[in-house]
Design a protein around this nucleic acid. Structure first.
Lengths: 100, 100
DNA sequence: TCGCTATTTAGCAATATAGTTAGATACAAG
DNA sequence: CTTGTATCTAACTATATTGCTAAATAGCGA
């Protein structure tokens, strides 16, 4: 997870996804590196659980998984500097349909 | 900075420093890796501004720089998932002597 | 100064990372 | 079933990272 955040391109991808779902191609077009490199970055982010992918016809759309980022990184921050960071607890976005 | 946090040993060092100042040797003794490796981890953390060092006679003592961690990482989190993380603003520890 | 302890620096090997190009796969439209 | 677009996987290269051992440096005390 922290490994996934170590690369600036990946952090930028996460920020770009802040505006909503984007296709691999749209993401790639924002960087100077070639498609395959972006694709691997996306698969690393996916492996870390930071993005989710969904097929839409021809394209593959990526979405930010905010909860995961907030819980993991925020959790770490809360451990090391609990006075300065507050993790705001929040219902899971899918809580409605979740069996629990 | 995120690069510095990418290594689990370094994250553990930061957590260990949560309890206060520790010497390089004390830190090293908590890990299975040898002294020189720990020394390099410490210099990377220092390079990222996450720890500060101070000489005490024979030894070198390391301190956690919480502000830096909270501001950088918390700042990133606040950008990507602002709803879920709150950065608590806090007077600098040296504010007392600051002209302001 | 000499010897002792604590820590860092230097040099090396193994593994991981990030980029590239070329080719494979998935889907939509004829 | 063939073509065209979007994306991924494979194979390769260059660089970075992490660990190790051996040697250098810094401070303390006789």
């Amino acid at each position: 997870m922290f490994r996934a955040l170590a690369d600036p391109t990946r952090r930028q991808i996460l920020q770009d996804l802040r505006g909503g779902e984007l296709s691999a191609g749209e993401i790639a077009s924002r960087f100077s590196i070639k498609g395959p490199s972006v694709s691997r970055h996306l698969s690393i982010l996916k492996g870390a659980g930071l993005v989710r992918e969904r097929r839409d016809a021809n394209r593959i759309l990526y979405t930010l998984v905010e909860d995961r980022l907030a819980l993991c990184v925020g959790g770490f921050l809360s451990t090391v500097c609990p006075e300065q960071v507050v993790l705001r607890r929040r219902q899971s976005r899918r809580a409605a349909g979740t069996p629990t």
